[in-house]
């Protein structure tokens, strides 16, 4: 016990580092859902002008790295597009 009193460091620096990493992620996540939802909605609207689309077939994902973030958009289009393309819908 006495020995630990003189020891520099302790567990606080670990706590501090864990918190800093965790909170950096959580802060981004807090603002992210809105952005992703907004992007998804607008992408759906744009594609929907030309193609009949199942909303569940559009996936929007955002990943945050330390230097860059990536936005991943995956849109599944049904085969036989001729049948679903709406020529007049773009007007």
């Amino acid at each position: 016990m006495k020995f630990s009193f003189f020891k520099r460091g302790g567990s606080a620096p670990v706590a501090r580092e864990r918190l800093q990493i965790l909170l950096a992620h959580e802060r981004i996540e807090r603002t992210q859902p809105d952005l992703v939802a907004k992007l998804r909605k607008e992408i759906l609207a744009v594609i929907g002008k030309h193609v009949k689309l199942d909303p569940d077939m559009v996936q929007v994902k955002m990943e945050h790295g330390s230097t860059v973030s990536t936005l991943e958009i995956e849109i599944e289009l049904p085969n036989g597009l001729q049948g679903v393309i709406m020529p007049g819908a773009a007007a």
Binding site: G10, A12, A15, R16
Partner: peptide, 13 residues
């Protein structure tokens, strides 16, 4: 003892 987040740690975070 260094076993509790310091005031500076909390303020910085």
């Amino acid at each position: 003892r260094g076993d509790m987040l310091s005031i500076d740690d909390v303020l910085e975070i």
